[in-house]
Amino acid sequence: MLQYWTDYHDKILTCFGQHLLITVLALVASVVLATLLTLVLLPHRRASQVVVNLLGAFYAIPSLALFALMIPLLGIGPIPALIVLVLYNQFLLVRNFIDGFSQVDPALTEAATGLGMTPLQILWRVKFPLAFPVLASGLRLAMISTIGIATIAAVVGAGGVGTILFEGLQSQDPVKLIWGTLLVGGLAIAVNAALNAVERASKSRLHYEEAE
């Protein structure tokens, strides 16, 4: 185990770095796109339901097939992988974003309007903080899913920890597979724990404010 680290730590770190980079880039792009989609869809209940269903259907396509189908269109490397990841994330993010915002009590929006807030102020000052726990849980799901699917992206040459895993399977090498699993599992666990903490903090803050 340790021997592999001493011999190949630069390779392990490169793969890990690639994985991290893909994950972060995919998430940033996903959140931006999902936010725009949510803002557009939010006033239209029916349309948003149709879009979320469509995204859900898309999400059900196995990533292996989707990655492969993207090759003729987008080629290989990290870019097509990023695009597939962003597409997948839209389902998790848009669904939770829309749910989060629609769950906000209309009475509060009404009260805010009564206080003379503009629609933008209501969105930012009232709806966003109240919807935050649901938004954060969507983000957490998307992050975990991205880390997982990014391993499969190794088949289209996107690099990342998936490379170590596929090589490990090729050469039937448990050491590589354990390293790969530790890296990608550890990353997922760490991210999960961090975002859980954020979610909990945001929830308890809400309760505190309610108590006041």
Binding site: I144, I147, G148, I149, T151, I152, G162, L165, F166, G168, L169, P174, L177, I178, G180, T181, V184, G185, A188, I189, V191, N192
Partner: peptide, 11 residues
Amino acid sequence: RVIPSLAVLFL
């Protein structure tokens, strides 16, 4: 639960 399925499967 958060460990990717690919890793679990190969391992």
